[in-house]
């Protein structure tokens, strides 16, 4: 029996055409699709697989505006049992610290054995919330995991490191963050999608978590986004013509002198 909490975030679709909003600190949300953060999808999948093997429950935790419920329903359709949605407007505009603090209040003391989350969210890509949450819970954590085995009160996780892999064993409860390759997330079955519509999504406010307005969201954040700028447009590719041997020589030259990568 494993009681697993999975932290998920809703993010703009990888193919969405992003533009910076007028206040230069946010992206324009009009006209883009949002998805369940792909790394979180791996975390949800892993949680469900563990539950299917060992029994237990999977609870989804999500901090985000009302629209994020769609991502929660995706996780529920995949097989999570219930969800807690930190949807209150007061949670908005925070940083990784306020997010981890709020999640900690929601998760702590609920006899979870394991917290799973994505290694990072593809929107701001800071990758801090999982580690900060573990710190606040006082649990061990392993990040960017590509293989996970849970046996009894021990979790053995493989994580990618530069040029190889590392195997880390931790005692439960623990926080594990998922790297691509951990699993292949499932495509939900229709009856499960239908069941997911009826599953409980508890909406919680800072007060429900015992937090004051000043401890959450923008009010509690220690860091603020000062500005956002779009990435410079990609310049057109170069076609190098000529005999293969000459062309290859030219490519090597350009890689060394112009791109400075070799």
């Amino acid at each position: 029996m494993l009681n697993i909490a999975v932290c998920v975030k809703q993010v703009p679709d990888t193919e969405a055409r992003l533009s910076v909003a007028a206040d230069k600190t946010r992206i324009e949300e009009q006209g883009i699709s949002f998805i369940l953060n792909p790394y979180d999808e791996h975390a949800v999948e892993e949680a469900i697989r563990l539950k299917e093997k060992q029994g237990g429950t999977v609870t989804v935790f999500c901090l985000g505006p009302a629209r994020a419920e769609e991502a929660i329903r995706t996780a529920l359709a995949m097989g999570a049992d219930k969800a807690v949605h930190l949807a209150d407007a007061a949670f908005g505009g925070g940083d990784e610290g306020t997010a981890a603090a709020a999640l900690e209040k929601a998760i702590a003391g609920k006899s979870f054995d394991l917290v799973l989350a994505g290694r990072l969210a593809i929107d701001d890509a800071s990758g801090q919330v999982g580690a900060r949450l573990a710190e606040k819970l006082g649990w061990p954590h392993v990040t960017a995991v590509t293989r996970l085995a849970v046996e009894g009160r021990e979790a053995v996780a493989n994580r990618e490191i530069d040029g190889g892999s590392q195997v880390v064993a931790v005692t439960l409860p623990a926080v594990i963050t998922a790297q691509r390759g951990l699993n292949q997330p499932r495509y939900p079955k229709i009856p499960d999608i239908m069941k997911a519509r009826r599953k409980e999504v508890a909406k919680v406010t800072p007060a429900d978590l015992g937090l004051s307005g000043g401890e959450v969201g923008g009010a509690g954040a220690k860091g603020k986004v000062a500005g956002l700028a779009p990435a410079p447009g990609r310049s057109a590719g170069k076609v190098i013509a000529g005999e293969p041997a000459d062309a290859a020589r030219k490519v090597v030259g350009l890689l060394r002198d112009e791109a400075k990568v070799i």
Binding site: D13, T14, E15, A16, R17, S33, I35
Partner: peptide, 10 residues
Amino acid sequence: TNFNPWALGW
């Protein structure tokens, strides 16, 4: 997500 079969933004 993008209403087309390719991974191209709608």
